[in-house]
Design a binder for these strands. Structure first.
Lengths: 193, 193
DNA sequence: TTTGGCATGTAATCCGTTACATGATTAG
DNA sequence: CTAATCATGTAACGGATTACATGCCAAA
């Protein structure tokens, strides 16, 4: 059984809060859920056609001047589909962490070779942490009394806690690798005497 | 530019610690790196052929009775390739968290509908945490003086810290959702009077 | 004797990504 | 005028997953 395509639910989810064009859906996704969900642009237009064919959304034409512009609306059937999916248990996601894979195989190259990768990760994670802290502060201010905000905050909290954990790991790993490198240098010195 | 296939490096990494058959590579991956890397079995045999064609591994035949059995060895070129990859910065991975996506769109279905999903996640995460704690304890005992162990422990620490963070998030989210549900019940009651 | 593990592979399919192609509108 | 943004789509490709197909060997 193939895993079901998630793009459709993203589209339904976005359209549930109001009609939008394909282009707008893409932008909306990039601005809102991008920290835990990447959608690939190339899937959107074909999926819009499919959802329309299936009656989950409908399309209206709103050209501006000569430029064509199609705005999509969710239908009652689409809302039902979205609800069903939200309440359904998430499918197990394939786990793939390339940095950990490199470290797992790192004995042959030594701690010095992977330390820069961990340091780079630290830097990036520190930036992410700052971004999330700011986003958490701004979200309630930017959308006062918006009933979606509590749910959005929950996803932000996930980002914050996970980034903290990754940062803690990177810090600890940096130390471990340095100690490992020092140990190897010590051994080589000892071997020479 | 297409993203490069990671299966090849997994195979090279496994073979770097000793020759193995395709079947053994698969089992080894499932037992060791499975908590942060899932490899799909169907890729292994085609990839073994390709790596052999490219001279990164070589094959020797070691049949047991009538059953054919091919054992693969890494070549010097393969070791070089592995080293290069390990030292290279990891490619940005697509981030996709389905549970968070559901929660992000959950306002329409309400907190009651997603609470069970979060509770299920809590349970599963608690089990994972126990597994990791045990693995951390056993790893040095099972492989005494193995120079790979420090690196393996680093990946385990990532599992431990991330699982802790996810668990903390799930606990906090569970409370948040219950409060949200109570709030909605309160509002409805107030609206009736 | 039959179940489960060892062992090699292929086929079908779909998902996801990137790049391409084209053009209108608006703001600086 | 020109660059950025708005806007709709298609093509090509490769990665990942699942299921299928086949058969040997050992242990209960």
């Amino acid at each position: 059984m193939p895993r079901d395509n998630k793009t459709q639910y993203v589209i339904l989810g976005v359209l549930a809060s109001g009609p939008r064009s394909g282009y707008e859906i893409n932008k909306w996704v990039e601005q809102s859920v991008t920290h835990f969900w990447k959608e690939s642009f190339g899937q959107i237009y074909p999926m819009l056609s499919r959802l329309k064919r299936e009656g989950l959304i409908r399309r209206s034409s709103q050209p501006t001047g000569k430029r064509e512009r199609f705005v999509y609306h969710i239908t009652p059937a689409g809302e039902r589909e979205l609800r069903d999916w939200v309440a359904r248990a998430p499918e197990p996601a394939p786990v793939r962490n390339e940095l950990l894979l490199k470290i797992f195989f790192a004995r042959k190259v030594g701690p010095e070779a992977i330390l820069p990768l961990v340091e780079a990760a630290r830097q990036e994670l520190a930036q992410r942490a700052a971004f999330f802290a700011e986003a958490e502060r701004l979200l309630p201010l930017d959308f006062p009394d918006d009933p979606d905000v509590p749910y959005w905050l929950i996803t932000l909290r996930a980002g914050i806690l996970l980034t903290e954990a990754r940062l803690a790991w990177a810090n600890e790993t940096s130390k471990t690798l340095k100690a490992l490198a020092a140990g190897r240098r010590g051994k080589r010195r000892a071997a020479r005497t």
